[in-house]
Write a protein that binds this DNA or RNA. Structure first.
Lengths: 324, 324
DNA sequence: GATTTGTTATACATTTAACGTATGACTATG
DNA sequence: CATAGTCATACGTTAAATGTATAACAAATC
């Protein structure tokens, strides 16, 4: 990022008000205050400081500039010609400073630029689009990069300029802040065709006899189920014939009768409703997965991120309630 | 001079960079330097300070602004979006500051505005006009108020905004700086018509018999003459029939034969040359008067005054050499 | 994989600077 | 002449900025 000399944009030349003269903005503001108050004592009162302090600041300014700004005695005060010029220029300069601060303050308060979010495929295509739409409605001028990824290496993306991500599963990276949004139920499903000619399993233990599909992001060769009423747990050893990292691919395979699978309820609701899939042993479920909004820990957050966090906090509970 | 609220021109509103955050200009300059150097250590080297100092200044700025300006680790650094905006705005602001300083520096180095000078009538009408003309030739844009006064209360004028004065006579006001320019010889003259039918005085003592004119600014009822060779002194009691504060009025009266007078040689040279006046007892003269450029003691002087002082110092000796 | 180098951030002690209080000097006013 | 209010300075205190030392980290090199 280093710029060579030809690109340097820092104003060059010797500074009249060198470092070590205290806060130069404050000196200029004090000078303006003195002029407008009409004497040093009144200026001190308006500035909330003492008359000697004001006197010293004026002298510091005059010394640094090498100019007499105010001709003053114990009872008279008038601007010199240099003082008049300085007064006019200082007003312009400090007005510029005020604009500078105002613009930065606006940046701090009004979202601007591009928000970059990673969301898992499972949510990014429908469930979170509602809040996203409302965010864009509320903030004209904002743009959003909505990146669908299931990659767990979220910290890499964030160091690459991503503002935040929706993460399913435990958040273990200490460099990230995790805002819990809810949980996703994970249920056991199979196609009716898979069950044709077989006894429908009445208990979790019977599931092991069936062919399995693995969503290897979440489970591979072993499944842990918990009884929703008694909270008993049963661990099953399975030998999946099919393994994927896509919930949708798993759904498709299950619908085709290739095997039993465990997936998030909300992604399977439609297939269950139209009979393409049936839930097996409904009282047994895999551990629900926490869903979190995660972003890097930092001292300050851009307004665009803060506004998004506020929105997701407000609506995320409804998006990921325990029924889902 | 106090302005009421409606006239106040100080930029209003809460300052993002409040007093107490150190020199705000320095913080901004440090930020720009970091961006252009590419890392904090290089910026520290270029700023002639230490890396921890640069780190703290950057953090002070970020804390005061409530914005993250630079995303940085031990080996990477990149501007955030807020940082990019701040960088652009800071350059503009500091360029404005540099112009501000440049203009003030110009004021310090280049004469500008109106120089106000008091000169005695005796000199202001011809002898000093030469240097004045050269001053105006050398400094385009300057204007000069050339005030002819013989009033000895120069300090009053100076408190009224006069930059300097040419003063004839001893300078006793401790608040003034006096630059000696030379001396003016004061000689005894009379009209030939006054001497008609009389013996021409051969010695200073014989002058008392003649009628006298007084230049009451310098002498009234007593005249002290000194012999230019033996340095003997003679004090004469005189009874002037005519008294004035104007050297020219005294000259006119002397030419008309109204009496003997003492005046500055250079103002009488022409009348002497064309026979209107003659010098009496040439080896006896009144004490010469010092001529000084005076101005109020001050910590700083505007450039227009400093340039004028330099010019008068350089040429004043020739203007008021001991022959005159 | 271990080591070196160079980075950023922080703790600590020192140095520097800014401040408020007290007060002197001055001048306008009553 | 006394009083009130001004500006400038001396002094001691407080606050802040600094440099040094160093920990933690990561890329580059061996």
């Amino acid at each position: 990022m280093a710029l060579d000399d030809s690109q340097s944009k820092i104003p060059s030349g010797t500074l009249l008000l060198p470092p070590g003269t205290g806060d130069r903005i404050e000196l200029m503001l004090t000078f303006l205050r003195i002029v407008e108050a009409g004497n040093l004592s009144a200026a001190a009162a308006q500035l909330g400081t003492t008359q000697p302090t004001v006197s010293r600041r004026l002298q510091t300014l005059e010394r640094a500039l090498g100019l007499r700004l105010l001709q003053r005695t114990t009872h008279t005060m008038r601007l010199t010609q240099d003082g008049e010029r300085c007064y006019e220029r200082a007003k312009e300069l400090l007005a510029g400073w005020a604009r500078f601060e105002s613009e930065l303050k606006g940046a701090r308060e009004e979202p601007e630029g591009t928000l970059r979010v990673i969301v898992p495929h499972a949510f990014g295509q429908d469930r979170l689009v509602g809040p996203l739409a409302r965010y864009l409605q509320q903030h004209a001028g904002m743009t959003v990069e909505w990146l669908l990824h299931d990659d767990r290496a979220i910290h890499d993306y964030i160091s690459a300029g991503i503002d935040c991500a929706i993460q399913v599963g435990e958040v273990t990276d200490p460099g990230l802040v995790a805002i819990p949004l809810g949980q996703v139920q994970r249920i056991v499903v199979a196609a009716p065709s898979l069950l044709a000619g077989r006894d429908v399993p009445q208990d979790a233990g019977e599931l092991a006899k069936l062919p399995w599909l693995a969503l290897h992001t979440y489970y591979r060769n072993e499944v842990l189920l918990e009884h929703t009423v008694s909270h008993k747990r049963k661990r099953l050893q399975i030998k999946p014939r099919f393994s994927t990292d896509s919930l949708y691919a798993l759904r498709s395979a299950a619908i085709r009768g290739l095997g039993v699978g465990i997936g998030s309820r909300w992604a399977l609701t439609e297939a269950l409703a139209n009979g393409q899939l049936v839930q097996l042993v409904p009282e047994w479920q895999a551990a629900p997965l926490p869903v979190s909004l995660v972003y890097p820990y930092a001292r300050f957050y851009p307004a665009r991120l803060r506004r998004f966090i506020d929105l997701i906090r407000a609506e995320g509970g409804a998006l990921f309630d325990s029924a889902g």
